[in-house]
Simulated scan of single mutants.
Amino acid sequence: MVDYLINYLGFSKEQASTVTSKVSHLKSTQKPKSIIDFFKKCDLDNTQIRKIVSCSPKLLTSHVDKTLRPKFRVFKELGLSGSILEKLIIESTITSCASLVSNVNCVRELLGTDEKLIKVIERSWWALTRLNLSDNLLVLQKYGSSNDKIQMLLIQMQKTFVFPFHDCVPHLYETYTNASADNQMTQLATSMICLKLFSVTKDV
């Protein structure tokens, strides 16, 4: 495997050894070769493939038809390429195709156009690979977040989507809307977050 990665992709011996140490159960180059050949057919060059394989060696154990091809179909339909495509391939390793499609469709429906969807992907590409993204978007809509505010959140505060919203957002919303005038610290703290999330406003 080490020699294969060196000769076929131009890895250094040290890099190839590092990659193979993480997929040591592979006894032949048959599956890695099928993965790499697939990447090349998708117009990824050796430099891009080296980066993908280095960041996510376990991709070499994937199944082309069951795992990679359906995901690439989603990416290609959106016209994604270059560094964004590389990052999505790496980050989507642990994301099922069904979850990826669900997230793409949910964001597309929310934003209305593929142009806006691609804008969000360019700024917040990794959010599409989060298992709870579509659920989080539905929670925000339920509690009154406008589409514009959700789009802004996806672009500017995308890391918040790492966490499931179904527990924290209802509590945050209730705290914000019910805070009394004598509880200024609570109001001010929650206001800073809620103004990012909700279409409601409140004097503090």
Rank of each mutant, 00 (worst) to 15 (best):
residue 68 L to V: 12
residue 46 N to S: 01
residue 2 V to N: 02
residue 47 T to D: 05
residue 88 L to Y: 05
residue 164 P to G: 04
residue 38 F to V: 11
residue 5 L to Y: 06
residue 36 I to S: 01
residue 3 D to E: 12
residue 159 K to S: 15
residue 64 V to T: 05
residue 136 N to G: 08
residue 100 L to Y: 11
residue 150 I to S: 00
residue 172 L to K: 07
residue 190 T to Q: 05
residue 74 V to P: 03
residue 30 Q to E: 08
residue 13 K to A: 11
residue 92 S to L: 10
residue 128 L to K: 08
residue 112 G to P: 00
residue 58 K to N: 15
residue 187 Q to G: 13
residue 81 S to N: 12
residue 17 S to Q: 14
residue 108 R to M: 03
residue 73 R to I: 07
residue 4 Y to S: 00
residue 169 V to G: 04
residue 2 V to K: 06
residue 76 K to E: 14
residue 92 S to D: 12
residue 155 I to K: 04
residue 82 G to Y: 07
residue 52 I to D: 05
residue 99 S to H: 13
residue 143 Y to A: 03
residue 149 K to A: 02
residue 201 T to I: 06
residue 100 L to F: 14
residue 197 L to E: 03
residue 11 F to T: 01
residue 161 F to K: 09
residue 118 I to W: 01
residue 65 D to M: 07
residue 73 R to K: 15
residue 21 S to W: 08
residue 196 K to A: 05
residue 73 R to L: 10
residue 37 D to G: 06
residue 136 N to T: 10
residue 81 S to A: 14
residue 179 A to F: 09
residue 165 F to W: 07
residue 188 L to T: 12
residue 70 P to V: 06
residue 78 L to R: 02
residue 153 L to F: 08
residue 71 K to V: 09
residue 18 T to D: 15
residue 51 K to E: 13
residue 198 F to Y: 07
residue 52 I to L: 09
residue 167 D to V: 08
residue 156 Q to S: 08
residue 204 V to P: 10
residue 147 N to P: 00
residue 38 F to C: 11
residue 116 K to G: 00
residue 168 C to L: 11
residue 171 H to W: 07
residue 86 E to F: 03
residue 61 T to S: 15
residue 42 C to F: 03
residue 187 Q to N: 09
residue 72 F to G: 06
residue 94 I to L: 14
residue 192 M to E: 13
residue 21 S to Y: 07
residue 70 P to D: 07
residue 67 T to A: 09
residue 111 L to Q: 00
residue 113 T to V: 00
residue 141 Q to W: 01
residue 51 K to W: 04
residue 145 S to T: 04
residue 10 G to S: 04
residue 136 N to Q: 11
residue 129 T to G: 06
residue 14 E to N: 02
residue 97 C to D: 13
residue 52 I to F: 08
residue 168 C to S: 15
residue 173 Y to C: 01
residue 14 E to M: 02
residue 169 V to Y: 13
residue 71 K to T: 09
residue 105 N to Y: 09
residue 165 F to V: 05
residue 200 V to T: 11
residue 32 P to H: 02
residue 112 G to H: 01
residue 173 Y to K: 02
residue 17 S to E: 15
residue 109 E to V: 05
residue 51 K to N: 11
residue 12 S to N: 04
residue 30 Q to H: 02
residue 85 L to A: 09
residue 138 L to A: 10
residue 189 A to F: 13
residue 167 D to K: 05
residue 82 G to D: 11
residue 122 E to A: 09
residue 189 A to T: 12
residue 26 L to Q: 04
residue 136 N to D: 13
residue 119 K to M: 01
residue 44 L to P: 04
residue 120 V to A: 01
residue 59 L to I: 14
residue 34 S to L: 00
residue 14 E to H: 00
residue 165 F to T: 07
residue 197 L to C: 06
residue 142 K to S: 03
residue 49 I to G: 05
residue 58 K to Q: 15
residue 108 R to L: 14
residue 197 L to T: 03
residue 69 R to H: 11
residue 66 K to W: 04
residue 72 F to T: 07
